[in-house]
Computed example of a mutant assay.
Amino acid sequence: MKPNSPFFIKLLIIQCLSVLSVSQDFDFFYFVQQWPGSYCDTEQSCCYPTTGKPASVFGIHGLWPNYNDGSYPSNCDPDSPFDQSQISDLISSLQKSWPTLACPSGNGSKFWSHEWDKHGTCSESVLDQHGYFEATLDLKKKANLLHALQSAGIQPDGESYSLNSIKAAIKDAIGFTPYIECNVGQSGNSQLYQIYLCVDTSGSNIIECPVLPRGRCGSSIEFPSF
């Protein structure tokens, strides 16, 4: 077959597209929830959504496809932009469980659009747009982080708690080891910011994490009020 023949060129294009589609597969999800008190207690501060101050519970940040080597795909399908009409039945649940705290105040649609475009489009082989947001909401019901911590005597009261006790409380309640991400509060203290759990490629089942993000907290971290 001649390298410049139409058939050879067509075959090459098919092979390239095949490689691209394989590169968009993934090994697991990070399911990430954030504590609003820590998000707001920074120099950048926060803005409550137009729907009002969120509840004092962990809010969803996102459901992020990842690879076992620690890397991750992103913005996989620009031809599948966020379409709020596809999730109209989920809006009230999203405003409650997946609120935006970014400034200026918004109703959440910009936040959800970013999460879908960057992360959700990389999971379209298993979850369409409605399925992606519905699966994430269902995971939050399975992983009630505040209840897990409070059951172990760990309260959002501005006090500091050991990192090990926070991890143990979540593992005891949910059955799997979390990854804890900290940020720095206005007073300069390390504080509980985000909690990562890992989920299988169906988006349904929490699993042990194949790999953890980089970064670490101190041995004692603050749990600010909200």
Rank of each mutant, 00 (worst) to 15 (best):
F223A: 00
P210N: 08
Y196T: 06
K142Y: 05
C209N: 07
T50A: 12
G59Q: 07
L12H: 14
S21Y: 06
S5Y: 11
Y72N: 09
T51Y: 10
C217K: 00
I13L: 13
S56K: 10
W64E: 01
Y48R: 04
A102N: 07
G59D: 01
P3Y: 03
I174H: 05
C209W: 10
P54S: 06
P6H: 10
D138F: 12
F176E: 09
L101T: 00
G70S: 12
G70H: 10
P156Y: 03
H147A: 12
E134Y: 13
I91T: 11
S202V: 07
S56P: 06
H61C: 10
Q86H: 14
K118G: 02
S88Q: 13
D128M: 09
C46M: 06
F223Y: 10
V19R: 08
E115K: 10
S160T: 13
E181L: 02
S88P: 10
V19Q: 06
E208D: 15
C46P: 01
D69L: 10
E43K: 05
T51G: 10
I206E: 07
S38K: 05
K53H: 02
W64S: 01
D27T: 13
F29P: 07
A169G: 03
S88K: 15
N183T: 07
L101H: 05
A135P: 04
F7S: 14
Q186F: 03
S105C: 09
E181F: 04
V57R: 06
C182D: 03
G203W: 02
V211T: 11
S125P: 03
G37I: 01
Y196S: 03
A173R: 02
Q129W: 02
C47A: 08
L17W: 13
K110M: 15
T121W: 07
Q86P: 01
I166A: 01
D41M: 06
L20M: 14
G185R: 00
Q33H: 09
N205Q: 11
V19S: 12
D117M: 06
I174A: 02
Q84A: 11
G203H: 09
S225H: 09
E181T: 00
P73C: 08
K140R: 15
N66R: 14
P81T: 06
P73S: 07
L212F: 14
F133A: 07
Q44N: 11
A102W: 01
C209M: 04
L197W: 05
Y39T: 02
G106P: 02
P65F: 07
P36W: 02
K53V: 07
K141V: 12
E43L: 11
L139H: 07
W116Y: 10
T136S: 10
K140C: 03
Y132Q: 05
G37Q: 00
F111H: 05
F82W: 09
P224C: 01
S109A: 15
D138R: 10
C198A: 11
F28C: 10
A102R: 04
D27C: 08
H119V: 04
T51N: 11
K110L: 14
I206P: 03
P78S: 15
P36L: 05
L90I: 13
P65D: 13
S21R: 09
W35E: 04
P81H: 02
Y196Q: 03
I9A: 12
K171P: 03
S38M: 09
S187H: 07
C47W: 04
Q33A: 00
K142N: 08
F58L: 05
I174N: 09
F111Q: 02
R214E: 14
